[in-house]
Design a protein around this nucleic acid. Structure first.
Lengths: 145, 145
DNA sequence: TAAAGATGCATAAGGCAGTGATATAAAAAT
DNA sequence: ATTTTTATATCACTGCCTTATGCATCTTTA
């Protein structure tokens, strides 16, 4: 693993993000979905059905944990197990309509809480956030690849 | 609870933050500290000793959960229970030197991973992130109060 | 093409961290 | 001086994770 030089600016960004991470954590309603469950459902929503083996690594959990999570999601009607005609071992996981709704509810809860904070922000800070969105998205893409 | 109007921009910010939250989650090394443990230690580091009853609500956990967390932290030497001379019921929790080190290690791990991503970002996006930091901090302050 | 190995998923057993209900001691109120 | 409230602890239980392992099914290769 290569060592990256940490500049003072990087450290400042990291410190800001650290506080911010906890802000988001508090903003997220303790809802029906665990962190991993929500993240997995969003992945299924964003990029379609996946084999089980493609899910556990990016979510940072073990394969049995993903098996159990999908079992729970299936029991709650939020996801569905299917099979791959080309590979008898594979299980293909798909999000259901109820799953999409659960994701939307969670997102809306957080958006609502966030909007209440955002409207208290000075306009120039609000604008700075909007201006930073492409960078945030880009960062997420970098890790995904 | 008042209903806040959600603008399209707010929704865009929320969507960006949602992805970003998961980025940070993946960036955080699965370490010795649980989310609540890390958050609590940071609070003790940032704003000094607290009574147990002042800790559980802001961290969003029940009082027994905080009692148990402090017991674990104490067992690991990361925090210390003390008493309040003015109130025989109270338990005053203080972070130890080892606790500060654990927080620092965790922070550094995340900073390191983040820096590796940040250096891949175009300079103008990097600048946009720096420019958004005050807004992020401000947002965190808003929720804290 | 049969045997061996690799891969994908499930199950089992156990641990950590959360919950609500409740106990206990100290402080505050009546 | 009781009664009530407050601060913390304990208990029993649950959810979600872990590692170890089992068992198909696919792939490789002798």
């Amino acid at each position: 693993m290569r060592q990256t030089t940490i500049t003072a600016e990087d450290a400042a960004i990291a410190a800001g993000f650290e506080r911010f991470y906890e802000l988001l954590r508090r903003l997220t309603p303790r809802s029906e979905l665990s962190l991993t469950a929500a993240s997995t459902l969003r992945r299924l929503e964003r990029s379609g059905p996946h084999r089980l083996c493609e899910l556990h690594a990016p979510e940072g959990v073990s394969q049995p944990a993903m098996t159990q999570l999908i079992t729970r999601l299936e029991k709650e009607g939020l996801a569905r197990r299917g099979s791959d005609p080309d590979d008898g071992r594979a299980v293909v996981v798909t999000i259901t309509e109820a799953g999409r709704e659960a994701v939307a509810r969670r997102r809306e809860g957080r958006t609502q809480a966030l909007a209440a904070l955002l409207e208290q922000l000075p306009v120039e800070e609000h604008a700075a956030l909007v201006a930073a969105l492409p960078a945030l998205d880009h960062l997420s893409d970098l890790l995904a690849s």
